[in-house]
């Protein structure tokens, strides 16, 4: 799949933002006044910024409100509802902390649950697609939720939880790569089933229908850069998880080291998210003899 910057930024930053809202909702931490304002402003900047980035790839962003109508069947529509519900509940909860120094615990818990539900619903947009076997698996929502929990814990300074969650996220990512690499082959979809000609002999794409590129090839048969996949995987693991854990584990931890850990984590997540799209093979590529 084409790794569009808008979608990479969207899933990365809104994942972090909703992860922050999850921990803030649990009251970990539960700051008040100006400190609370800074925490919530950062969480909202990430979550809302990510959502706004996602509208950049729309052909007609001015019609985006229509996306709230089809929640009965569409995960994308459900995501619109889940994210708005989370942002509303957490705004009320945050206002209590910032302006009244009051923590309404029940509201926070509801907001935390909604925040993780939003991340899970977002991941279902990808996991629902049978056409992309690498994504069509329970590990896709699991991975995105763990990423969000780990990133949120890191951003809110929950070191006790961030360290094990970062390790867990790294391990989950490695296992998702290992099983994902085999999933297209395991799906049983081949050029033989795509053409229905497999019973007659070995099928080979002989001549493509068009000599130039088209929307399908640009959008769904992105193969550029896959050759760097292994190096990028390593970069993603080191920057995203290993280095932040190392920095958090240093005995002389401070704000600057925490900032370095956060920036390293974000860079690592961006790398793995680029791979999430670039490595995903859409079955339509089979019709072109590509994957």
């Amino acid at each position: 799949m084409h790794p569009a910057p808008s979608v990479i930024l969207f899933t990365t930053f809104s994942g972090l933002g909703f992860g922050m809202l999850f921990w803030l909702g649990l009251g970990m931490p539960a700051p008040t006044g100006l400190v609370a304002f800074v925490f919530f402003a950062l969480a909202y900047a990430l979550a809302v910024g990510g959502l706004i980035a996602s509208t950049f790839h729309l052909g007609h962003p001015e019609r985006a409100l229509r996306a709230f109508t089809q929640w009965r069947t569409s995960w994308l529509s459900r995501e619109a509802w889940a994210s708005v519900a989370t942002l509303m509940v957490m705004a009320a909860y945050g206002a209590g902390l910032v302006f009244a120094a009051t923590r309404i615990a029940a509201l926070g818990l509801i907001g935390a649950a909604l925040a993780m539900a939003t991340v899970a619903v977002t991941s279902m947009i990808y996991a629902q697609l049978r056409t992309v076997p690498r994504w069509h698996h329970w590990s896709t929502p699991a991975l995105l939720v763990i990423y969000s929990l780990a990133g949120g814990a890191l951003m809110t300074g929950q070191v006790r939880y961030a360290m094990p969650l970062l390790v867990l996220a790294g391990l989950a990512q490695v296992s998702a790569w290992m099983s994902g690499d085999k999933r297209l082959a395991e799906s049983g979809t081949t050029l033989a089933t795509a053409t229905g000609l497999g019973g007659r002999g070995a099928v080979r794409a002989f001549e493509p229908p068009h000599t130039g590129p088209n929307y399908l090839l640009r959008e769904m048969v992105h193969v550029v850069g896959r050759k760097h996949a292994n190096r990028l995987r390593l970069i993603g693991l080191v920057l995203g998880f290993a280095l932040p854990v190392l920095l958090l584990a240093l005995p002389f931890a401070g704000h600057w080291l925490a900032l370095a850990a956060v920036l390293s984590h974000i860079a690592g997540v961006l790398a793995t998210r680029w791979l999430f799209f670039a490595e995903a093979e859409h079955v339509v590529g089979l019709y072109y003899g590509k994957r």
């Binding site: 052909g59 007609h60 019609r63 049978r130 979809t189 399908l216």
Partner: peptide, 26 residues
């Protein structure tokens, strides 16, 4: 007139039957 041009339907189609028009963005 209701299409926002998100492209998710083209992702969901295994056959490559849908194409986003680069001019009309639908």
């Amino acid at each position: 007139s209701a299409c926002i041009g998100c492209g998710l339907c083209a992702w969901a189609c295994p056959y490559g039957a849908r194409e986003m028009d680069a001019a009309a963005k639908v």
